[in-house]
Design a protein around this nucleic acid. Structure first.
Length: 275
DNA sequence: AACTTTTTCAACCGCTCCCCA
DNA sequence: GTGGGGAGCGGTTGAAAAAGT
């Protein structure tokens, strides 16, 4: 269609966000809710394009984002989900409460790819690789980077915890996905549960979309991972506890059991997601 | 201590999808 | 049916930090 860029680049800030900009964006969304990204910067008094605002909010400022170490459980879940879905980061992120697609994508590229290679697995196909002589040096590198990473994450987590204890604001949490028609599962269905392949329920972020909330089979109003539809709620309550993650993981393990016996079913599931 | 290389991850870019007039 | 606009996604980039020499 040949459309213009989302914003005129002239006169707009780019690059790292300043604390003042973060504060303006957070305050605006706290007061008015999400959505209308294109016009949001102007209304919030920000010299940023809407896309940039959305990204900043989604990947960094959102109060339900979990920071800190990716746990072994999450690690494993990401790998398994990737083997099913490929680089569908938003779908994978939707299964891992509190993590963003960007974070998972970065984590995959910087850690899990190496990890899988070290284990002799092709990170793209998830199939066994032939023995690699460079394996040992990779292992050493990984050890180094993990050490560093651990340190960084510990620091950022403590900072985040401090920030969150200061925040505790009320926001209108977004729908995690687009509203879609009955006939298709959206490209990004971050609320989709493994048990709800046939009962996709879309949640809406804007009041307009809320009115259109779709529930295909009258079930799954409250998504089983606790991330279905959000109204106004205390942000801190959205941060998933260990139990939630456990639940997601157990659900996944159930699917894997099915996989053992019914490879075909699993293929169908993956195809249904990718359709 | 100084310089180079590697790693990390926030942010950007370009594209597609979906809705609506 | 068509095109424009908003939103979201995945790939890529580049600055900063860390590690290596």
């Amino acid at each position: 269609m040949g459309r213009a860029p989302c914003c005129s680049k002239v006169g707009l800030h780019r690059g790292p966000w300043l604390p003042r900009e973060d504060a303006l964006l957070t305050k605006y969304i706290r007061d008015h809710g999400e959505g209308q990204w294109r016009s949001l910067p102007k209304r919030a008094g920000l010299l940023r394009c809407g896309k940039s605002c959305r990204l900043r909010w989604m990947n960094y400022l959102r109060p339900d984002i979990k920071r800190g170490n990716i746990t072994p459980d999450e690690d494993d879940l990401i790998i398994r989900m990737h083997s099913l879905l490929g680089n569908r980061w938003s779908l994978i992120a939707g299964r891992i409460p509190g993590r963003t697609d960007n974070e998972i994508k970065n984590y995959w590229n910087t850690h899990l790819c190496k990890k899988l290679r070290n284990q002799g697995t092709d990170p793209n196909t998830h199939k066994k690789l032939p023995d690699d002589p460079a394996k040992e040096s990779e292992k050493k590198k990984k050890k180094r980077s993990d050490k560093r990473k651990k340190k960084n994450r510990a620091e950022s987590e403590s900072e985040r915890n401090r920030a969150e204890s200061e925040k505790k604001i009320l926001v209108y949490l977004p729908k995690p996905t687009r509203v879609t028609s009955l006939s298709s599962i959206p490209r990004t269905d971050s609320t989709l549960t493994l048990n709800s392949i046939n009962s996709y329920s879309a949640a809406a972020s804007t009041s307009k979309e809320k009115e259109k909330e779709v529930n295909l089979e009258g079930e799954n109003q409250n998504d089983d991972n606790g991330f279905g539809f959000f109204g106004e709620m205390e942000c801190s309550s959205v941060i998933p506890d260990h139990g939630t993650l456990e639940k997601v993981y157990e659900e996944y393990l159930q699917l894997l059991k099915v996989e053992e016996n019914h490879d075909h079913d699993l293929d169908s599931f993956a195809e249904s997601l990718l359709a």
